[in-house]
């Protein structure tokens, strides 16, 4: 029991298992094998964003521009494809674009020491605006060229977005747990001043994490374009808050210093299960109920986390005695 309490992912794990059991019992069709992966797959780009967001929130920062950066990259990808660029170079362009937005965020935050929410609020507006600009007047959707679309339709049936998201998740987990960068991120998150004194290059660390997140937003942009068969100027609208929600449900602390990629992914899984479960119940106005549940879950999982921490400090005290 004590061990279970010590895991920071335990609230989200309880949530996932609870949701799963409830839905499995009460919702017919919930366990239909291929269907569940199709539903989870819709959350691939959202999971990719959540991994980047975990690193950022772990460093006590925040990035509300990821949705817009996703939109910008997807449009750039579409424009490049439409102009006859190859698949590889279009992907490269989208990834570079995402990284550049991230680097810009990082530069303003790390070098000019502006507040993360201010900088990313501004790039949120700017990236969306630039997406409209490069798409052209009155263009809301840039269809992929026929041969590319054919390939994309093939991939739509496959689970490649899901696999990609898993690869990103494993990568994020490795970075956070196994590399010096991960240690720096958490050090900066728990106490920036102390991190600086212990010789960590705080500015460089921040520049890195915002760039990584931008890169991931670019990647999510490509995934989105692929899954939608087209590049949409409004793609990723509102994803920033959904990604933040998943990260927070997952047990990453908003004040930094404590982060878990596994938890964030479980957060995404919980949200996607909620979506599937409610969807299969055949409720009218499903999305509104989903939002309502999401709010309740977010609040209760954080309250649960506090209980966990209280129990932990109690048991620590008991041990000390």
């Amino acid at each position: 029991m004590r061990r279970l309490i010590a895991i920071k992912e335990s609230p989200v794990l309880v949530l996932c298992v609870g949701l799963f059991i409830c839905f499995a019992i009460y919702v017919p069709n919930f366990l239909d094998g291929p269907g569940i992966l199709d539903d989870v797959k819709q959350y691939a780009s959202y999971a990719i964003l959540a991994v980047g967001m975990t690193l950022i929130i772990g460093s006590a920062g925040i990035d509300i521009s990821v949705g817009s950066v996703l939109g910008f990259s997807t449009v750039l990808f579409g424009c490049a494809m439409a102009r006859g660029m190859g698949l590889m170079s279009a992907c490269l362009a989208a990834l570079i674009a995402g990284s550049v937005w991230g680097m810009l965020n990082g530069f303003f935050i790390a070098r000019l020491k502006l507040q993360p929410i201010v900088v990313t609020l501004s790039s949120m507006a700017a990236a969306r605006g630039m997406a409209y600009v490069i798409a052209g007047q009155g263009v809301s959707s840039i269809p992929l060229p026929a041969e590319a679309a054919g390939r994309v339709n093939l991939t739509y049936g496959s689970y490649s977005p899901l696999i990609l998201a898993l690869v990103v998740a494993v990568g994020g987990w490795l970075v956070l747990v196994k590399t010096p960068l991960g240690r720096y991120i958490l050090a900066v998150g728990s106490n920036e001043e102390a991190a600086r004194f212990s010789g960590i290059d705080v500015a460089k660390t921040k520049l890195w994490i915002y760039s990584i997140t931008g890169f991931l937003a670019g990647l999510a942009g490509i995934v989105t374009a692929g899954m939608m068969n087209t590049s949409i100027t409004d793609a990723g609208l509102g994803y920033e808050f959904e990604a933040i929600t998943a990260v927070l449900i997952g047990g990453t602390s908003i004040s930094g210093g404590e982060a878990t990629v596994v938890g964030s992914i479980l957060g995404v899984v919980a949200v996607s299960m909620l979506n599937r479960g409610l969807g299969l119940m055949g409720i009218n106005d499903l999305e509104l109920w989903r939002m309502l549940c999401l709010g309740v879950i977010l609040i209760s999982s954080v309250l649960l986390d506090q209980l966990r921490k209280r129990a932990m400090s109690k048991s620590a005290k008991a041990q000390a005695v």
Binding site: F241, L248, I254, L288, M291, L292, L298, I299, V302, Q306
Partner: peptide, 21 residues
């Protein structure tokens, strides 16, 4: 004792969907 950003993100979802419903 919840961090404000989490509490109000939660109530954002709850209050907005309540308003629509």
């Amino acid at each position: 004792r919840m961090p404000p950003i989490i509490a109000t993100l939660g109530t954002l979802y709850i209050i907005q969907s309540t308003a629509t419903l």
